[in-house]
């Protein structure tokens, strides 16, 4: 496996919209293994998207299993992911391997329903919430050339977080 170089803003490749994956072959699975190793090599990294390493294909990896006491699906390989339903809003702090030494608040949907393929092309459906849903929304944004910087809200002036329903 190979550690891939993570592109950092203002690299223009981070702003490119990625193409759907159509070939589910060994080359794809080797790339995914490298991408996952790159994510795990980054301190605190719980997700990565292919465009972060210069590959503009709709491939995302998320694994929030290191976080205690949250609902989550473990290691997720999400290819051609489509968020089909959104519900609720929550403000949370985000950082990004492609934006070092800066974190900021972003509003994300609290719960999402997601459809995606795995590395063999099989379709899966997921219902997720909270931290995991935030990570998936952050990574899916990368596939559309969006960074969390595009969605920043004030670090202050939101007196108390809304009660979760």
């Amino acid at each position: 496996m190979t550690l891939l170089t993570v592109l950092t803003y203002p690299d223009p490749q981070l702003k490119i919209e990625s193409e759907p994956v159509s070939k589910f072959d060994d080359a794809l699975r080797i790339f995914i293994a490298d991408l996952e190793q790159t994510m795990r090599a980054s301190p605190g990294g719980v997700g990565i998207a292919a465009p972060q390493v210069g590959c503009t294909q709709r491939i995302v990896i998320v694994d929030v299993s290191s976080k205690p006491k949250i609902q989550q699906h473990g290691r997720l390989i999400l290819i051609n992911p489509e968020i089909e339903q959104w519900e609720g809003m929550a403000k949370g702090r985000e950082g990004c391997m492609s934006v070092p030494d800066f974190t900021g608040n972003v509003i994300r949907a609290e719960r999402i329903h997601l459809k995606a393929q795995d590395e063999f092309g099989e379709f899966h459906q997921y219902d997720m919430q909270g931290y995991e849903a935030r990570a998936v929304q952050h990574e899916c944004d990368h596939l559309d050339g969006l960074l969390f910087l595009d969605r920043l809200v004030s670090r202050r002036h939101d007196l108390f977080p809304r009660k979760k329903v």
Binding site: G44, G45, G47, H142
Partner: peptide
């Protein structure tokens, strides 16, 4: 007084 943990999501 309200305390909210900040768990920064790094992706």
């Amino acid at each position: 007084v309200h305390l909210t943990p900040i768990d920064t999501m790094v992706g």
